[in-house]
Each structure stands twice: as C-alpha cells, then as structure tokens.
Simulated scan of single mutants.
Amino acid sequence: MHQPEKPSPERIRRAREDSPKIRGRDLAARLGISEAELVAAHCGFGTVRIEPRVNDVLTGLGAVGEVMALTRNDSAVHEKIGIYDRVFTGKHHAIVLGNDIDLRIFLKVWAHGFAVETCDGGEICRCLQFFDAAGEAVHKVHLRPSSNLYAYQKLTDELQSSNQEPILSVKQRSAENIAKIPDQAAIVDDLREHWSRLTDVHQFFDMLKTLNLSRRQAVRIVGQDYAWLLDNDAVSAMFHHAAEDEMPIMCFVGNRGCIQIHSGPIKSVKQIGPWINVLDETFHLHLRTHHIREVWAVRKPTKDGHVTSLEAYGADGKMIIQFFGTRKEGEPERDDWRLLTENLPRIASSSAASGNTDAY
C-alpha cells in the first residue's frame, strides 16, 4: 500500500508557526506524522536531540529539583509536580518512589529523546520529551520556575546526541495480538484457580502471562465474586465521592513505557464537556470519559485481605486508567474505599455476559 509522502522539516516548522496554540500531538496527527517527528523537525530551532539513556535521565533529574512529570495515553493525561527522588535503576526496569513523583518505567520502550525550548508569551518553557520507536510520547518532564536551570543544562549537555538531524525514522506500530480463548469453560476454571491463589496484586500480570489472557479478558470471564461490570458513570461518581469525603486514592495512568501514579486525596474535580479534570495544587488529571467503553470493579486476594480496583477500558480493550484506595503493603484495604467501590452503580450480570466480544 502506497504511503503518503511525509512533510519536510521546513513544512512542519511552518505548520507549528501557523498553529502555535494547538497541542503537538494534535498537530502531528493533522500532518500525518508522529509527535516525535514533529519535535525532531525543530532540531536546531530550540530543540536538541538527546540520548534516551533512561537511568542517567532519572538519576540526573534529582538535581534539577521541582518539575512537572507528565505521562499519558490516548485517553488520559496524568501530571504530577514534585522531585525525582528515591530512584531505583535497573537493566530492564526503573522505579521512582518519590513522595510526589511515582513511576514504573520500562526501559526498552524509550527510543527517542529531546530537550525542547519554546517561547510562550515571552516566557521560556523547557522540557524533556521521550518517545517510543513509533514516535508516541512515553514521558515528559517540564521545568518549573523553581527548577535548577544549571543542573538541567548540565544534564542535557551530558545526554546530547551526535545526531541533530531534523528528520526522524519511526517504526510502524504493529497490531497487538489479543489472545484467543480456545475453551472458555476450561480457561475460566484455570483462571479462577490461579486468581484465588494470589497473595499480592503484583502477581496479577504474571498470572495473565501464564494463562495467555489480556487483563480485560480475565475480568470479563472470572466471575462476579472477583470482577463486576459498572455503569460508565462510575468513574465520575467515584471522583466526586472521593473529593467530597477527602478520601485518599491511588490513580494510575500509563502507556507501554511508563506508568505514573498519584497517591493521596483529590479536591478540585471539574467536568468540562466529555473531560473529567482534577485540578489540584500538585496533581492534574484529564480524562476523556467518552473514550470509556467499560468500567470494572476488580477484587484481588492478597495476604492482607482482598483489595479492590476500579478499572476503565477503551474500545480497543486496553486499560485507560486504574484506581485503588491508598494503602501500604502490609495494611488492609481502606473500609471507605471498599464501601465506595461496592456501591457504585452496577450493570446487570446478563448485560455483562452479553457484552461486546471485541477484546477476545
């Protein structure tokens, strides 16, 4: 199939000049390119290509001080203000366990990096932007007024790539294979057996991998004692109840390369059109509710008693966002969170059973 010719770097930069307010992700889509290609076109024009040496990035960011960390997917944007401290690096994974910035990072996904400097109304804005091999954003770090500019410049100088060409080669994202269930009755029994033996929520992914199931497949077939379908308005209801009761929650938003977590109460919840927005002092969240296809309450056994998550899925079967009540390992689930999740509006079991099978 013939691929349309991509715009030149010059044309991309002109498009940005003509539309300075449009978000980079949206402008890239309009131009038929990835966001990473849009950013790369500005190399030499306020943008410097840097090596995506993730461990060096994470350890170096601590000296930069207060920044805003941003992780997103197609349907949710998660922003946290804080410091990159308590960084634990590794060969395949890295973790940031700061009081405010809490990340789970998958190193092999980070393929491209840039240090970007723009001018907005006379104010210079600086950020680091990282993308996967297909040019989709993985994680961004925006400087704040109190950030240490010297430490930031030192870090970007150390990471600067020898390749400053304004053209970027990206790989086409291959369609993800969704596992097929050959014998649903047999796999349900096997799934329920494995599920019942969980002692930690972190064992859940390994269980899915062992059974060759996606997360959404598992919650759909495991049975209502472990997972039950909720009305799509359940997420909005949860936000408003949690804010009203000052209930501390955990909010997870991620993509293939990074998961970002907020832990604590939320205060300012605003619905603007199809978007639910949390606009707190150090935490902003923007969620496209019209992208939500299903919402599930999911109960997992642990050695501290069962814990309950609220999970929203898109039409592609991927999880958009996930919530827990705030808890530390060794502590039982909060009673107020459990009460809330168990009383959110449910969809009758017959409706759940006859739901769409596009995830299978």
Rank of each mutant, 00 (worst) to 15 (best):
D304I: 09
R299A: 03
P265K: 15
G273Y: 08
C258M: 04
Q271W: 08
Q322A: 02
V269P: 05
K328E: 14
P332Q: 07
A312N: 06
A237N: 12
P265L: 04
N277F: 04
L229C: 03
A234I: 14
W275C: 00
N255I: 13
N232R: 15
Q224Y: 04
I272N: 00
L229Q: 09
L310N: 02
V222F: 03
P332I: 11
I266G: 01
D280C: 08
P332M: 10
P248T: 07
M250G: 06
T308R: 12
G254N: 09
V222Q: 04
G273L: 09
H241V: 10
V253A: 02
S214E: 09
V307N: 01
P248D: 05
H286G: 11
L285D: 03
I259W: 03
D225I: 13
T282M: 10
T282L: 10
D231Q: 14
E281V: 12
E329Y: 14
C251T: 15
R216I: 13
G223E: 03
R293I: 07
P265V: 12
A227V: 09
V235R: 02
G273Q: 05
A312G: 00
N255D: 10
A237Q: 14
E329Q: 15
L229T: 04
W275G: 00
I320W: 00
H262E: 06
K318M: 12
I276T: 09
T308S: 10
M319S: 10
I221G: 04
E329N: 15
A297R: 08
G254F: 00
Q271T: 15
G325T: 06
D280P: 14
P248Y: 00
I259T: 11
M238E: 01
G264V: 08
A237W: 03
M250Q: 11
F283C: 04
H284Y: 09
A297L: 08
K267F: 03
H291K: 15
P274A: 01
E333N: 12
M238F: 01
C258E: 01
L279I: 14
I276E: 10
L287E: 06
F323G: 02
H291D: 15
L287N: 03
A237C: 11
V269Y: 04
E333V: 04
R327P: 13
R256M: 07
D233K: 13
A297F: 06
V219K: 05
G305P: 05
Q217S: 08
E333P: 12
D280T: 13
L285A: 14
R220S: 12
N232K: 14
T289Q: 13
R256S: 05
Y313R: 03
V253D: 04
I261L: 15
A312Q: 11
F239M: 11
G317M: 02
P301D: 00
E294W: 00
D280F: 10
E331H: 14
Y313K: 01
G223M: 05
V235E: 01
Q217C: 04
L310P: 09
R299L: 11
M319N: 11
P274F: 00
I249N: 00
T289I: 08
R216S: 09
S309W: 05
I321Y: 01
E329V: 15
G305Y: 07
R293S: 14
K270T: 12
K300I: 02
I259R: 03
